[in-house]
């Protein structure tokens, strides 16, 4: 019943001739971003310094990657609460594999491969678990990923004995953090490339389009002959693989495998996606919304840090922003109808 109703409302929300207001609504977030930057700059000039802008871009690239991962599953009316712990697990696994391979006396490229293999392997395993439990066993995504949340925390802390794992080789850090392509720092260029590929994938491939159909109306997707279960599994694997890539980049930054790296990332990634305008009801959102949301959250916390706003107040502000962001999105939807 509600499936049908939802699909009908979202069909009718496709904008046709509401040109001016529609553009205004779309511009709300970018305008808010610029206003935010200028506002912080009025208090502290250093916010707009080239160094800090680069810093913001770099910080955004990690959160954007996680928000993109989260967006992919949210498109199908899903969630991945396990994203944060999976990041911790991948970080620890990657560092351990590389430290082990180095100790065994392998050459640097083999060490690197071992690390990447372990990292992506753990990420894919987590995604497969989530996808299969959700698609094949029919378990609610919230519960399924809450389950793997616990499992991943357990694995991460057990593997690392709760301590940072040292022994990450210089080459690895150089490749995923220190290096740059055409003068653009590694983290930013990787996220740009991935974002572009994902954008094309969501917009131009059968797989990408089917995510929107499943999110808009799962029953119609099944009736239309889409292999919904297989697509869902692939979606969660994609999400966890992106998270694993982000984890590898963050591990390269810190230079050690951290069992607490993921911390509150699950919720931050959901917040980033949702603030950007990804709909939790499924079927609406994309790379653009994820990047915008991540940029917003990052600028907000960067600006509050530079203007020395108490860290505890920042939590209150972030909470309020998430709610307001979703509220604005709902109002926008209503205006369209």
């Amino acid at each position: 019943m509600s499936d049908l109703e939802l699909s009908m409302t979202s069909e009718s929300t496709i904008p046709k001739k509401s040109f001016p207001t529609e553009w205004l609504w779309r511009a709300v977030l970018p305008i808010a971003l610029i206003a935010l930057l200028l506002g912080f700059a009025a208090v502290d000039r250093s916010v707009l310094s080239p160094g800090n802008l680069l810093n913001i871009a770099q910080q955004t690239s990690y959160l954007a990657l996680f928000a993109m991962a989260q967006t992919v599953v949210i498109l199908t009316r899903g969630f991945d609460l396990a994203l944060g712990p999976a990041v911790s697990m991948v970080s620890v696994g990657t560092a351990l594999a590389m430290a082990g391979a180095t100790a065994a006396g392998h050459d640097p490229s083999t060490v690197l491969l071992a690390g990447l293999g372990a990292g992506f392997g753990l990420g894919i395993a987590c995604g497969l678990f989530n996808g299969m439990v959700i698609a094949l066993l029919g378990v609610n995504p919230f519960v399924a990923t809450l389950g793997s949340y616990n499992v991943a925390i357990g694995v991460a802390t057990t593997l690392s004995a709760g301590r940072p794992v040292q022994g990450v080789p210089e080459l690895f850090s150089q490749l995923f953090y220190g290096g740059s392509i055409f003068g653009i720092p590694a983290a930013i260029s990787i996220t740009l490339v991935i974002g572009l590929v994902l954008h094309l994938m969501l917009g131009r491939t059968v797989f990408g389009r089917s995510l929107y159909i499943i999110g808009t109306n799962p029953r119609a997707a099944a009736v239309a002959g889409l292999p919904v279960k297989r697509i869902l599994i692939a979606t969660y694997v994609l999400c966890s693989t992106l998270a694993a890539l982000g984890a590898i980049m963050m591990t390269a930054r810190t230079g050690s495998g951290e069992p607490n790296l993921g911390g509150s990332l699950s919720l931050q990634a959901i917040a980033g996606a949702v603030v950007g305008g990804t709909s939790l009801a499924g079927g609406r959102g994309g790379v653009g919304t994820a990047v915008l949301g991540a940029l917003f959250v990052t600028i907000l916390s960067n600006g509050m840090n530079l203007t020395r706003i108490d860290g505890y107040i920042q939590m209150v502000v972030l909470g309020a922003i998430v709610i307001i962001g979703v509220l604005l999105d709902r109002l926008r939807l209503e205006r369209r109808q």
């Binding site: 917040a271 009801a281 909470g319 709610i323 509220l327």
Partner: peptide, 26 residues
């Protein structure tokens, strides 16, 4: 927020979770 503003309960309580924890620490 859930009933009047019709924001999804997940998002609302995610927001108030952060805010409430922040107030407690503050």
């Amino acid at each position: 927020c859930v009933a009047k503003l019709k924001v999804s309960g997940f998002v609302v309580t995610l927001g108030t979770m952060s805010a409430t924890a922040g107030v407690g620490l503050m």
